[in-house]
């Protein structure tokens, strides 16, 4: 009887050890995960901050060679990414824009549209091209690490993405206009965007950081204020009803009389694992 009791003691001790081991391994499995997530998020945020700073600092003209078909494979520089960004990103048109990318984008956004021109008369303001070319370059390390990204400009009213083909921005983003200038109109490298058709409403490709088809559990979005000074009171843009979108001209018809407040856009960048 005593021998059996002793064996029982030993087995109980083994069970206690097993329980202790389970607790130790549970601790080890969970230890550092929160810190790891914080460090990853911090790195991503710091990267995004660097990207946002580069928008204000980098001269648009320096991006003229940053095209999707740039690079010479025979010299060990295989940077051809036409499969991702399309055949021609038109970065070469930035060669004469010796101002920061942010200034070009602001000039483009003054009329309430991100469409590479100011107003309806076709005045050149390649803000969207500048953003695409810049992001193609500055997101390379992140893309090589296996992430997709999406960039969008939001208006403060309900933070509606300007790029969507709907409502007030609809006319400026008609499919034919987008196709003419951008084989792939979105500022993204998402491989789910295929062909030259661009965005197709309801059934189309990813069209924003809020798109439910993005794996939202691992999506990180960073927004930054992007204020744009609207045209002055005496600007001829106010004489053309179609020149400015309603958001860019809240007064409506005619010239503004009071103080003109800056247009409070937001630039939002989101990244997620490919």
């Amino acid at each position: 009887m005593r021998g059996q009791a002793a064996i029982f003691d030993g087995i109980m001790f083994l069970m206690l050890v097993s329980f202790s081991m389970a607790m130790v391994f549970t601790f080890l499995n969970t230890y550092g995960i929160a810190q790891d997530n914080v460090i990853r998020s911090s790195h991503t945020l710091n990267y995004m901050q660097s990207v946002m700073k580069s928008i204000y600092l980098i001269d648009a003209s320096t991006l003229a060679q940053a095209d999707s078909n740039a690079g010479d494979c025979t010299k060990g520089d295989c940077q051809n990414e036409t499969g991702v960004y399309g055949e021609d990103m038109n970065c070469s048109q930035l060669a004469s824009w010796q101002v920061s990318v942010g200034d070009v984008v602001k000039k483009d956004l003054v009329d309430g549209r991100l469409d590479d021109k100011f107003g309806t008369q076709g005045a050149e303001a390649p803000g969207k091209t500048a953003l695409r070319c810049l992001f193609r370059e500055v997101m390379k390390p992140f893309r090589q690490a296996g992430y997709n990204y999406f960039v969008e400009v939001l208006t403060p009213n309900k933070y509606k993405p300007l790029q969507q083909f709907q409502e007030e921005a609809g006319d400026s983003y008609r499919m034919d206009v987008a196709k003419k200038t951008y084989p792939r109109p979105w500022i993204t490298d998402s491989s789910t965007i295929t062909g030259d058709a661009g965005y197709i409403a309801n059934t189309g490709d990813i069209h924003g950081c809020d798109d439910p088809r993005i794996n939202a559990t691992s999506l990180l979005a960073v927004s930054t204020p992007f204020r744009v000074q609207p045209p002055g009171k005496d600007d001829a843009a106010y004489d053309d009803p179609a020149a400015l979108e309603p958001y860019a001209n809240p007064v409506g018809a005619g010239r503004p009389t009071g103080v003109i407040n800056p247009l409070g856009y937001q630039l939002r960048v989101c990244v997620w694992p490919a």
Binding site: R2, G3, D9, G10, F13, L14, V17, M21, V24, F25
Partner: peptide, 23 residues
């Protein structure tokens, strides 16, 4: 009389110490 229990106890201590060292 306690000899039979020594083996699982020693085994338990060894495993426990190994776990602590590994952890």
């Amino acid at each position: 009389d306690d000899i039979p229990s020594i083996f699982p106890i020693v085994l338990g201590i060894v495993i426990f110490m190994g776990t602590i060292v590994y952890a």
